[in-house]
Design a protein around this nucleic acid. Structure first.
Lengths: 230, 230
DNA sequence: CAACCGTCAAGAGCGGTGCTCTCGGTTTTG
DNA sequence: CAAAACCGAGAGCACCGCTCTTGACGGTTG
């Protein structure tokens, strides 16, 4: 397997080229991109694509994985670039980074967070990169608690079954994070997703010309709910 | 035009039958339902469908309109059935009604709130019924303010451009509602959409077996943010 | 009563889709 | 150098939305 580097290289290049063209088609055709159209753009015949991707769904999966990584990178980079002690600044930075990426790549965002493609079932390999953005967001709460800048809500506000469920999530991703705080962090993530989706998919935009400021205010409301200090 | 009532009746029945079968297909095929398959189920030839719907998109539009009305009816009925003075009870009732309808009709929900169908552009006739659910939800705040059970947040927490945008929305749908309260109400609506979408589309469900309790707690958090009395 | 004309289902056909299989030609490998 | 692996092209299958034409049916009207 060491000697076939040339073949492997040109093959990898071809795979990248296919993905690149497919990504371009994604912007216009949405989730129902056409293998034949991609092949046409590459000057190939449709059946040749099957040498590189066993099916259209596998090509979609590759694009989804890349999109998750790109979003995760953008979000984590925004968090890393902010002042680690400025919790609210980090919160807004992460939210804005997710929104910016979504606005710059609406088709990819729709692929990740839109209604699922009818016949398509996302493989398990996508579950791990999908959790990077929310983990980054809620990670701010973990850091804030460790720094003493955040006081957890009363634990008894959670019904027992919810607390138990959240305890498992906390054990896996945020050891030591109180469940009630995790619940609020997940509310923030849900809100972030809702805001971006409404802006991208919905028609509410007409009535809200100042979308940047509205977005910041709404994410700020969630920061208030969490208790992030001003 | 008075005498052809028989023709009109059988025609209306046919339209209903087509929509019914299409709705059934929607559950399995999602947004890309097939006219030919619908025609097959009806024992017709595909071209016959075009006597009743000028295109596939028009059939989709009809289904979307029906779905909006069904959701709006469910939400408004839940609000009307609750004690008008129990703001928190109404809030939870409306949220639960929306979620229940979505869980019972996931394909229709995806059609309404999922990623838009690539080539499809929703006509303007859908914009009015689309606003019934959020208007119902935020209407609880209007009633609460009128009853003196709700104190509006400080008005200066809103940046001026956002306040101006929200003022126009308030003038159109909730005259007299303070902008800061409207902002919180819209945050609740965004959260509701995010919660339902995550449950329907996402894979977070695995880690949260107690979805009913989680949903209630998350919507309760938003009620807290709004200031709805316990 | 009969002619008429709108409505309807059916069929053929166009260009498109994902996908499979076979066939040659090239490249890498043993 | 021969064998094996790889690759692109092409034909073909079944499906799709949509258009156009044809023939039959049946209320409306002269």
């Amino acid at each position: 397997m060491v000697a076939n580097t040339f073949r492997a290289r040109v093959r990898a290049g071809m795979i990248e080229e296919i993905k690149s063209v497919a990504r371009r088609h994604l912007a216009t055709d949405g989730a129902n991109l056409s293998l034949r159209a991609v092949a046409r753009d590459l000057g190939m015949v449709s059946s040749a694509i099957y040498r590189y991707f066993p099916s259209r769904d596998d090509l979609l999966t590759a694009l989804i994985l890349e999109a998750y990584e790109a979003l995760g990178d953008a979000v984590e980079a925004a968090d890393a670039a902010a002042d680690p002690a400025d919790l609210r600044g980090r919160w807004h930075a992460v939210c804005r980074a997710a929104r910016s990426w979504a606005l710059a790549h609406p088709a990819e965002y729709a692929l990740l967070y839109g209604s699922p493609v009818p016949g398509y079932a996302a493989p398990d390999t996508t579950v791990e990169p999908a959790q990077r953005p929310p983990v980054t967001l809620v990670g701010i709460l973990r850091d804030g608690l460790a720094a003493g800048q955040l006081t957890p809500p009363p634990a008894d506000e959670l019904p027992e079954p919810v607390r138990a469920d959240l305890a498992e999530i906390a054990a896996a991703y945020f050891p030591g994070l109180p469940e009630a705080l995790l619940a609020r962090g997940m509310a923030g993530w849900t809100q972030l997703f809702g805001l971006i989706s409404f802006e991208l998919f919905g028609r509410i935009n007409r009535a809200l010309p100042h979308r940047d400021e509205y977005f910041d205010h709404q994410t700020g409301l969630m920061a208030d709910l969490i208790g992030l200090p001003h």
